[in-house]
Amino acid sequence: MSRNLKLYLAGAAMLLASLQQGVLAADGTSSTASATAAVQLIRPITVNKSADLTFGSIVKPSTGTGTVAVSANGSRAVTGTGAAALTSAAATAARFVIDGEGGQAITVTVARSFALKSSGNPDLTVTTTNDLPGGSTTQTLPASLGSDGSLTVNVGGAFDVSSATPTASYSGQFSVTAAYN
């Protein structure tokens, strides 16, 4: 094998190597470039209620106005002259469990207020409180892409009660919504 032929073969090998790397072909007549292509799939988001918000049984104030509050951790506080909560009917905060794709950003919307209704009586307006981390509606589900991320939010509430509030059983509904951004 002549020296020239060896050089030629070496050159050919280098040309092949450069082509395999996807760079400009050595003779400049062709060129290649690569791009990545990507898609992310995430599981549907769900919200499930695992506990209702219950205020229990409240004795209304004898005079004036008081408040009834159940915090997100389920503790109850009643104010007002003569007002009290009966220990026989426990209070609970509502609990919602949000499940979705780990690591994904979501927006959680808790109703700010809702009405407790009783037929024939004026509504009692409940203002809600919740324990979303940082008090923010924008959250990131724990865990990472490819596994389930679960976030629990507890919801409490407070309403005014006066000596004039009709005695009755009151109930109402409110919603918690979770959505990917």
Partner: peptide
């Protein structure tokens, strides 16, 4: 002059709920 091709942007569909 030699021909060259360069990649400016990669392809990304984004994120979708199944």
């Amino acid at each position: 002059q030699p021909i060259s091709i360069v990649n400016n942007k990669n392809m990304n569909f984004g994120t979708f709920v199944k």
